[in-house]
Amino acid sequence: MIQLDQLSKRYGALQALDGVSLNVPAGCLYGLLGPNGAGKTTCLRILCTLLAPDAGSVQIAGINALADPRAAREQLGYVAQEVAIDKILSGRELLQLQASLYHLDSATSRRRIAELTELLGMGEWLDRRCGTYSGGMRRRLDLASGLLHSPAVLVLDEPTVGLDIESRAALWQVLQQLRDDGTTILLSSHYLEEVDALADRLAILDGGRVIAEGSPESLKRDLGGDRVTLRVREFATPQEAQQAQSVLQQLDGVRQVVINRAQGHAINLVVEGEGAALLDRLRQQLEEASVPVFSLAQSRPSLDDVYLQATGRTLMDAELASVSSRDPKAEKKQAMR
């Protein structure tokens, strides 16, 4: 349904996209995961015909979006990251404007607005001015305007940033329902759990490249091995952690031992095999080596481990690093016409 082929985009010295290819099948809820600055928004802007790539091709529902952007736009609903609404208009007036821009006739416009008001629970406040809306209301209104013309493809850029847990759960439910009704959905996120819980397939983007692609299950399964987190004390000193590390490295079935400074020098292990027996064996070996145990937890690999494996750092670290290197002024310039 969506095919991006070898997309490249450069802003001055910054290579925002470096040969990104994606293939989103029809009826799929597809996640684009990556830290800030990975190229997610650039990718979606190109897809939505707001930005021309330096190289590469974009196909939406069989339409070459670069050659015939207007036909592509008719297939697309886009819910942008920065919610631009007209504060002076009421939500209903904004939707009516939107309906005219998509050339819906007035009967269709009324019917769709009524349907979406019902679906998104906007009845109570839709006739109030947009300037009075909370973040959650704005997001719902924005989703409604993206869905107004019943597009085949819905594109959402970080749809749950800044939403409270309830609004987020409600949004997930709506997206799943839309997918079940046949809409192809592409959403970007830097929340692991979100993509893990929601997406049928995903691509992980880092530094303008796709570094992993597949279903959440297959990506985690392919990684193999279980993850174990050991804390020798609640807040261990580096010495204690290193001591434990050297013991653990000697043990059978332990593939990798990393000290996680962000977690109070907890020790992250990658171990072979699965199951409770493993944990028991580990506990016994630690006792023999007289390494104290505050807690010992075992889990299947997560998408963060997938990211870690591909890039050598956790998504959280990448996120923190990008926050300090962000340039809001340059970002605004990229978004502004």
Binding site: C48, T49, L50, R70, A71, R73, E74, L76, Y78, A80, E82, A84, I85, D86, Q98, L101, Y102, H103, S145, A335, M336, R337
Partner: peptide
């Protein structure tokens, strides 16, 4: 509209 991004909303629409 340029500054607040409303223009982008208009430009995503299939204007004739």
């Amino acid at each position: 509209d340029r500054e607040f991004g409303f223009l982008n909303r208009l430009l995503v629409a299939p204007l004739r």
